[in-house]
Write a protein that binds this DNA or RNA. Structure first.
Lengths: 113, 113
DNA sequence: TTGACATGCAACCAAATGGTTGCATATAAT
DNA sequence: ATTATATGCAACCATTTGGTTGCATGTCAA
C-alpha cells in the first residue's frame, strides 16, 4: 500500500480512537447537517473542544462541512470507515477462523507441555 | 451499550490507533506464536518499546500470550476486531448509502443557495 | 556452575493529546 | 446602528503517549 493511503488510514484510526469523537460521529449519523452549536448541545465539552475534535474528523475526511450563512453544517462521510473495513479489517476477517483455531490449539497445549 | 463493553471497545480503538501496533498485529496475522524477540526483528524499535505496545494489545485482548520456557509466545486474537466491526462499524455501514446521498445533496445545494 | 539468552521492571524524557479561557471576526436580527 | 449569535484563532496547561536506557530476574546450554 502506498504511503499516502497509509497516512490517510492512520488519520482515520487516530480520529476513531477518541470516544468523544466517536460520539460526535454518532450524532451526525443520527442527524446530518448539524451546526457546531447543535453538536455542542449534548456533548459535555466546551465549544472549542468540539471544534478541535471536528478539525481532526475533517482531516480524516470522516466529516465534510459546508458553510451556510454564519453556520457551518456538518455531514458524516461514511467512505473512510468503509475503506478501513475493506482494506484493513477485512484482512483479519479473512483469516479469522484460522487464527481462532491456531489460538485454541496453542492454548490447549498449555496442559501437556 | 453497557459501560464495560464501551470501555473494552475504547481499549481496542486506542490499541489500533498506532501504526507500530497495527504492524505488530500484521506480523502475528502472518505467523502466529512469535516470541518477543521474533517480533523485535523487523520492527525498528527497542525491545522495551515493543513490550509496551504488546502490553496494550494484550489489554485490548487483541493478542493472547502463552509462556513456553523462557519465551513468551504471542497469538493474534481476531475476536475484538470482529466485534468492533459488528457492533460499531456496522452501524455506519447500514446507513452508508443514505449518508452518501444526504452528503451529495447537501454539497450540490452549494451552487444555488 | 557459569555464561548466554529471553524477558521483566523502573525511571526518565520529548512530543502529542485533550482540554481550558480569552479575544477576534463574521453574520443575522431588532 | 446596535446587539446577539455562530464561529475562528491563539495561548496556555495537565496528562498521556511512545520512546529511550539501565538494571534485575528467569531459564537454557556448555
Amino acid at each position: 500500500m502506498d504511503t499516502a493511503k497509509e497516512d490517510h488510514d492512520d488519520k482515520v484510526f487516530k480520529a476513531l480512537a477518541d470516544s468523544s469523537r466517536r460520539a460526535l460521529l454518532d450524532s451526525l449519523r443520527e442527524k446530518q447537517g448539524l451546526s457546531l452549536s447543535d453538536l455542542c448541545e449534548g456533548h459535555d465539552m466546551s465549544r472549542q473542544a468540539v471544534t478541535k475534535h471536528l478539525v481532526l474528523l475533517e482531516a480524516a475526511n470522516l466529516v465534510v462541512t459546508r458553510k451556510k450563512g454564519r453556520e457551518k453544517l456538518h455531514y458524516l462521510n461514511p467512505v473512510p470507515i468503509n475503506e478501513i473495513y475493506t482494506r484493513w479489517i477485512g484482512r483479519f476477517e479473512a483469516g479469522r477462523l484460522m487464527a481462532l483455531d491456531n489460538l485454541k490449539k496453542a492454548l490447549e497445549g498449555d496442559n501437556n507441555e
